[in-house]
């Protein structure tokens, strides 16, 4: 379902329906997901519709959080100096954009997941994060494509002690999403202390994948802080 479409389309998948119809200039965008309906009119001569995964921190209300906290169903402990990769899943939010040569405009965001928020750190200094629970995988797992995406985590424990990881926090500002039939991200976790680490994202486009539209850039927000410094531990 992810991809670039002409302004004339009909998608029906499970409980989701997306329709763009109309004459040459005036078109109607209609999206239905379960009970939820969105209808908008579009005046356009040219342009396309892009449906792609976006940073999963926008629903049910935008501006509440800029962070994603993935809690692992079981903690894992990393040996000092150890490097490696593992996979986790993350919630998918789907953005619908109108694009032409000059501009990108977001017209809709929806999700099949149930959003839940949590606090990382103490109440006076912590950050509100979108919460998600994932299993920790050695190999690429099966995905429910519109529901969850795949994140490859490249980790490195540069601390001289064993470190136990139960949760990882990512900054949505820094996210680089890619897609083919499912959403994908590639992240880094650098552990520099028993309770201190840093997360960031890779921006190199994987083979056979498209780059998602960056929601913050589409809004005209300049990104200044990128990496996230996890100073309140991994448990």
């Amino acid at each position: 379902m992810f991809g670039k479409y002409d302004l004339d389309l009909k998608i029906k998948e499970k409980e989701l329906e997306i329709v763009v119809e109309g004459n040459k200039k005036k078109k109607r965008y209609y999206r239905k997901k379960g009970e939820e309906e969105v209808e908008k009119f579009i005046y356009a001569k040219e342009g396309n519709l892009v449906i792609c995964p976006v940073e999963p921190v926008n629903l049910p209300k935008e501006g509440v959080s800029e962070y994603l906290l993935v809690e692992l169903d079981k903690p894992f402990v990393i040996e000092p100096g150890m490097k490696g990769n593992f996979y986790i899943k993350f919630p998918v939010e789907i953005g619908v954009f109108l694009v032409n040569r000059r501009d990108v405009e977001r017209i809709d965001i929806f999700t099949f997941t149930k959003p839940k928020y949590t606090l990382y750190g103490p109440p006076e200094r912590g950050v509100v994060c979108r919460w998600w629970k994932s299993v920790f995988y050695d190999e690429k797992p099966e995905l429910s494509k519109l529901y969850e995406g795949l994140m490859k985590v490249n980790f490195e424990n540069s601390y001289w002690e064993w470190v136990e990881i139960k949760k990882i926090v990512f900054r949505a500002f820094d996210m680089k999403l890619f897609y083919n039939e499912h959403a994908y991200m590639y992240s880094f976790l650098k552990i520099s202390g028993k309770t201190v680490g840093e997360t960031a994202f890779g921006s190199r486009k994987p083979k056979d994948m498209e780059e998602s539209i960056d929601l913050y850039q589409a809004k005209g927000i300049k990104k200044f802080e990128k990496k996230f410094f996890m100073e309140w531990g991994f448990k």
């Binding site: 049910p60 209300k61 509440v64 149930k114 959003p115 839940k116 928020y117 949590t118 606090l119 990382y120 109440p123 509100v128 919460w131």
Partner: peptide, 8 residues
């Protein structure tokens, strides 16, 4: 409720 925080 999505905004009733999981933690605390």
């Amino acid at each position: 409720n999505p905004f009733v925080l999981k933690e605390p």
